[in-house]
């Protein structure tokens, strides 16, 4: 495994490999709008290489910034033009950009999950086993590498001389959002302050209602006779039941941004079974507030955590919910 980092710049996301300490001393990596020209230059000067990631993706790829602001892409030697998270239209436009600017191209799966690893990749003309070898190859203007898709690596498959152009593909743009430039305003004092959020008495009735709603069939949750012979000596609640509990909100960080919010993610940890008759206390807090850029422009994430403790003071579960706030264009 070769390690790199992904940073956010004023032309979208940028992958950096093999950069030396100078790079990390120069930039605050939590900044979501680093000056791209400087990022590419310092990465190079410190012995590494920067690569424009998912170049065809709205906002977070270089293409839109070139189209809208005529960014010259000074110092950009390599762009990722075949990205596993981008659609064919976005990849086609990225390839056309690289071709027009005479920038060399790589592919990458952009995998956030094991099962999508290798969807897109780069074929090098020699073996690459270390980050140093990768950097050396990407920096060498005489080296050869080609982006390709997983299916193009199958026996007998060929890498096509040309892929469909953006004209031949169905356009896909979100058209939503805007990239704000101001520093995010919110109440930083409330982050990490845990308060009591309410009490939940777990009943057979609530378990039955929940099981009906999600059409549960696992006998440990729905069949008393079966469950009595099981490891818990009776029915337990499906872990997901805590998703339905209404608890008080933790102190509001009053984020000054956005027009609408949606649930972006959920992290759940389960420590102990939940039984009918349990009395669970919820302790809530805002864990983190941070911002990112995505297809729809600037996004602010608020991560809230609910820690559930039972009547014996034991932690039963911990649920983190990440809400994303976005600016919807009217």
């Amino acid at each position: 495994m070769l390690r790199g980092i992904e940073v956010e710049t004023d032309i979208g996301h940028v992958l950096v490999y093999g950069a030396g300490s100078q790079f990390f001393e120069t930039f605050d990596l939590s900044d979501i709008s680093l000056p791209y020209e400087q990022v590419f230059q310092v990465a190079w000067d410190s012995g590494g290489i920067a690569v424009g990631a998912h170049a065809g993706r709205p906002r977070i790829g270089a293409l839109e910034h070139v189209d809208e602001r005529d960014v010259p892409l000074t110092g950009v030697a390599v762009l990722e033009t075949l990205n596993g998270g981008s659609n064919d239209f976005e990849n086609a436009r990225a390839h056309e950009l690289a071709e027009s600017k005479k920038i060399r191209e790589v592919g990458g799966s952009d995998s956030h999950f094991v099962s999508t690893l290798g969807a897109c990749m780069t074929r090098f003309n020699k073996q690459i086993k270390t980050v140093d070898e990768l950097v050396e190859c990407l920096r060498d203007s005489n080296s050869e590498f080609t982006p390709l898709k997983l299916e193009e690596t199958l026996p007998g498959a060929n890498i096509p001389d040309s892929r469909p152009t953006s004209q031949e593909l169905v356009p896909h743009t979100s058209g939503q959002g805007e990239l704000g430039g101001d520093e995010l305003e919110y109440d930083r004092d409330v982050v990490g302050k845990e308060i009591f959020g309410g009490r939940l008495e777990v009943t057979q009735d609530a378990i039955a209602k929940y099981c009906e709603a999600i059409e549960e069939t696992n006998p440990i949750f729905v069949n008393s006779e079966y469950a009595e012979t099981g490891p818990y000596g009776g029915i337990v609640a499906p872990p997901g039941i805590l998703q339905t509990a209404q608890v008080a909100s933790p102190p509001d960080p009053n984020v000054k941004f956005g027009t609408t919010q949606f649930m972006a993610g959920s992290r759940q940890e389960y420590h102990l079974p939940i039984r009918p008759g349990d009395v669970l206390d919820a302790y809530v807090q805002v864990k983190e507030v941070y911002e990112k850029t995505g297809r729809s422009g600037r996004m602010v994430f608020i991560v809230r955590e609910t820690r559930w403790a039972n009547q014996f003071g034991e932690n039963v579960a911990s649920l983190q919910t990440s809400m994303v706030i976005r600016q919807i264009q009217q």
């Binding site: 549960e216 872990p239 997901g240 389960y270």
Partner: peptide, 21 residues
Amino acid sequence: TKLVTDWAGPLGRIVSLDISF
């Protein structure tokens, strides 16, 4: 969560789950 508990069977246990929408 149901998908995972169905897969695991009655004696299985979810330790953690991390999902994005």
